[in-house]
Amino acid sequence: MKRDPISWLGNALETGAAWLLAIVWIAPLLYALWAAFHPGEYAVRFDLFAPLTLENFAHALERAPFPRYAFNTFILVTSLLSAQLVLCTLAAYAFARFEFKGSSIAFGLVLVQLMITPEILIVENYAILADLGLVDTIAGIGLPYMASAFGIFLLRQAFKSTPRELEEAARLEGCGVLGVLWRVYVPLARPTYLAYGLVSISHHWNNFLWPLVVTNSVATRPLTVGLGVFGAPESGVNWSVISAATLLSVAPLLIAFLLFQRQFVQSFMRAGIK
């Protein structure tokens, strides 16, 4: 491919545009980093030689139990994902390999949840949770999301594309219904499990409205709700401390994302394209 000056210039312009847009895009986050690591008076004053400090983080930790919130979020996300994987695997297997009576109607009813997610029905779901005595529990935050239509849908697609011959071979080896699922379908769907897992973790790490309604104590509040309570304008906390608290709450997921960027991006792609 020959390089004439015009296409070279076009290329350089596009590279410049890409970089400019990237800088604009990341600037708010860089700004939050700046504010969090410098004393309050530098929040609006840029000085390359401003002293670095961890004071803001110390203040944030003094004012709210962020480690406890992080622990709650961790328990929520892991227990919810485990439940989702079991429930969705079983249901997806049913839809993919057992043409049982009423399966297409049942599948249609499952897909309803893609549109009507539990937080849309916040009023009645709260009432149901209260009837079950699960208000202000971590189980209560997770329960409505455990049977995930999205997970069932993704895994059903993956199971359907598994060659039947493998299942027959496993049956000849003496595997039962669940044995086939465990030895053939689950291992072959690993990329789908990874994709679904990452999407589920980031979704529930960040979820706010439903946990806000369900929880009202430090022992159950996830990070997002803790941060929401902390950062409310009327709480009168100074800006640098809010930045520090914000970074504290997003750090685990953000660091995981930066380390496994490729897996995250590919998972979101895979999950989105279906």
Binding site: W25, I26, P28, L29, S202, W205, N206, N207, F208, L223, T224, L227, G228, G231, T246, S249, V250, L253, L254, F257, F264, F268
Partner: peptide
């Protein structure tokens, strides 16, 4: 990156 952050943050 903004996609991975919670709306609250």
């Amino acid at each position: 990156t903004p996609t991975i952050l919670p709306m609250i943050a």
